[in-house]
Structure formats: C-alpha cells, structure tokens
C-alpha cells in the first residue's frame, strides 16, 4: 500500500506494508542511510529519528504509525552539519567508530529542543537509551553542554537585536 509521510520537509509516498519498520523504509526505500540498524528491537537507539519532533526508535515503529507525520533524520537536521549539536560533536571530537552517533545526535537534538538547559540528570534520562560500544559517553555529555551553551549565546544575541 502507498503510505504518505513527510521526511526532512519533503512529502514522500512509499509502497510498503504498514507494519514495516520505519527504519527500513528510510534506509532501503528512501536511501537515507544515516539512520542505522543495530539491535532491531529498540534497545540501543542507533536508529533514533524524530517523529513530529519527538525521538523515536525507527526500528520498532511501524511505518503506518508515521503516516501523515513529520519525520526528521540525521540528514535533515541540517544541510551542512551546522546544527549546534553537530558542531558541538565535532568540537568535542565525540565520534570513534561513529556508527551510533546519528542516533546519539538525534536524541541530543530532541532533548535540547525541549529543554535548552538540561542538567546532568536530564541528560542521563534522555541519553541512557543510546548505547555506544566505543564508550564516547563522556564526550557526548560534554558536547550536549557545549551545544546548550551555544544555543543560549545565540538566544542572547537574538534578544539583543
């Protein structure tokens, strides 16, 4: 059946059964391979995307449940790696193998969109569903604080104008 969804600001129509996980529609039908497959059961967060702004595990979300909704993937976060979370990630040299990082970044971006000044406890809550076998967690935390600082600075500058 044809399923319509808005992916990264573009209306798309895909032929898929409604129970196909959104992950495979993104990766194999829409060729958006920045979203990763790792556990297939929602345990690890590597497949995290935004559904109407909320972080979801696309490996466990039937595409039918995304019908008519807005999906944002790592490719849609910015066109040039300029999102404050992405620039903070580069500044803190977060990635090692990099495989889980799309999911980490999407979780972090969703956190900051809802809570621009997260405490360490807030970050723990938001990020503990994203596994990283390389152990980049310390830098992920630093990068989230850095991105929050940058967002606050931008807001201040915006306020002065």
């Amino acid at each position: 059946m044809a399923i319509r969804l808005n992916v990264n600001g573009v209306e798309r129509s895909v032929e898929a059964t409604a129970d196909t996980p959104l992950l495979w529609v993104l990766r194999e039908d829409l060729r958006l391979t920045g979203t990763k497959f790792s556990c297939g059961r929602g345990f690890c967060g590597a497949c995290t995307v935004h559904l109407d702004g909320q972080p979801v595990r696309s490996c466990s979300l039937p595409v039918g449940a995304a019908e008519g909704k807005n999906v944002t993937t790592i490719e849609g976060l910015s066109s040039d790696a300029s999102h404050p979370v992405q620039t903070a990630w580069i500044a803190e040299n977060v990635p090692q193998c990099g495989y889980c990082q799309s999911g980490q970044i999407m979780s972090a971006a969703a956190l900051l969109a809802n809570n621009p000044r997260p405490s360490d406890a807030d970050i723990d809550t938001a990020m503990s569903g994203n596994l990283c076998r390389c152990g980049t967690y310390i830098r992920v935390r630093r990068a989230i604080h850095r991105a929050a600082d940058q967002l606050a600075e931008s807001a201040e500058r915006g306020g002065e104008r």
Partner: peptide, 19 residues
C-alpha cells in the same frame, strides 16, 4: 590533539559503513 579527520562525516550521516 588534531581533531579527527572523520568526525564531520560521522555527525551528518554521510560516513559510508558496510551496511
């Protein structure tokens, strides 16, 4: 401490893994 040369491609989803 040169920043990693592969960092950019690993924060924008463009790094090409086997999968």
């Amino acid at each position: 401490p040169l920043p990693r040369l592969d960092a950019r491609s690993k924060v924008d989803g463009s790094a090409q893994f086997g999968i």
